[in-house]
Design a protein around this nucleic acid. Structure first.
Length: 316
RNA sequence: GCCGGGGUAGCUCAGCUGGUAGAGCAUGCGACUGAAAAUUGCAGUGUCCCCAGUUCGACUCUGGGCCUCGGCA
């Protein structure tokens, strides 16, 4: 029996319309959505993370949206573990698994079959490491785990800290994760926009989020005592709006900063995506839904018969 | 109208006791197998407001003009 499971991945920069496309495809092909998004997992974050609406959540089953409290930590390993469990389960129930999200590392980690040990972060340890100078962290990594030291980006304190945290936690050197052959038959779709048009969409979406009460949402979070935690998580826009709530910055300043930060984010996502192999690009200006629909239909037909049979209820 | 500040990169500004200029942000390109909406590297860009003068040489000094901000009228 084959170990291969089918999955559709929908990628693209922020504000490119991934969620909408995924909803449509889920409706057309009887699918469920597995969210590959490191910010939408948090239940208390709503407007600013562009979470699907309650109606949309009711129409299509979403996994990985709003299932953590702010006191919890999400991670690549946790995402992969959960998605690996879900994909076969969905297919057996006759549902098409749609992995949707802008966190490129998560999608790649899943599809390339990274094998990572779960290592829940230790807040106390993390805090103490964060307060130490980079040089010290580096020398500790160098003595505990020379191999990791060599491959690490040594200018990047965040990475150095996280590696040391993992080394200390497991009490042994990290292995560059072994990889098993990708266990999925994947159709990768990605949405592409002209840069200028995408930035415009981002800006308009920000205005819409503010109109819907994003600032009030942040006020509530600050009142509930989450300011520090949110500064730490650095989820786009939240730190800037917290500054507004605390009166250290005007809304106008924050609005501009958030726009720029989101542009940069979108650009980084595109840089990442360009190196992703086997992507079918959908031009946003060229009927992306229709193209996606026909690509998915063709791809489903091309799957081995044994896989199709395994799909409980069969294609719609 | 008078007094004062200012006109330098797309934006905000620094700078040169005279030798044609720079930072942050923006923008572009990149890295990234463990917090990734994070973190991080690299790059380009200029009639230095205009005209004249002094000078071997002016973005820098002098004179005039234009524009702008603030105060007083």
């Amino acid at each position: 029996m084959s170990e291969l499971w089918p999955v559709v991945a929908i990628m693209g920069p922020t504000a490119s319309g991934k969620s909408g496309l995924a909803l449509e495809l889920a409706g057309l092909f009887k699918g469920e959505i597995i969210s590959a998004d490191s910010a939408q997992v948090y239940a208390p974050l709503e407007i600013g993370v562009a979470k699907p609406s309650p109606l949309e959540l009711a129409q299509v089953v979403h996994h990985g949206v709003g299932q953590l409290g702010l006191e919890e930590n999400f991670s690549l390993a946790a995402f992969i573990t959960e998605a690996q469990r879900l994909i076969p389960a969905l297919w057996r129930r006759g549902q098409l698994p749609l992995v949707v999200g802008g966190t490129g590392l998560y999608v790649r980690g899943l599809l390339e079959g990274y094998l990572l040990e779960e290592a829940p972060p230790d807040e106390g340890l993390r805090a103490s490491l964060n307060s130490q100078p980079l040089e010290l962290l580096l020398s500790r990594v160098a003595s505990l785990d020379p191999a990791t030291y060599r491959r690490l980006d040594r200018r990047n304190k965040r990475r150095v800290t996280r590696s040391l945290e993992l080394i200390l936690q497991r009490g042994a050197p990290l292995v560059d994760s072994p990889r098993r052959p990708p266990p999925y038959a994947v159709l990768k779709l990605a949405l592409r926009w002209e840069r200028e048009a995408l930035y415009k969409r981002i800006d308009e979406r920000l205005e819409a989020m503010l109109e819907r009460g994003w600032l009030q949402e942040v006020e509530g979070l600050v009142r509930a005592g989450w300011a520090e935690r949110l500064q730490e998580l650095r989820i786009l826009g939240y730190p800037q709006l917290i500054e507004v709530v605390l009166g250290r910055r005007t809304l106008e300043e924050a609005r501009q900063e958030i726009k720029f930060a989101t542009h940069r984010y979108a650009k980084r996502q595109e840089t990442w995506l360009r190196r992703e192999p086997g992507v079918h690009w959908l031009e946003a200006s060229d009927a992306p839904l229709e193209r996606a629909q026909s690509l998915v239909a063709q791809w489903l037909e091309s799957l081995p018969a044994e896989l199709q049979e395994r799909r409980g209820a069969g294609p719609v």
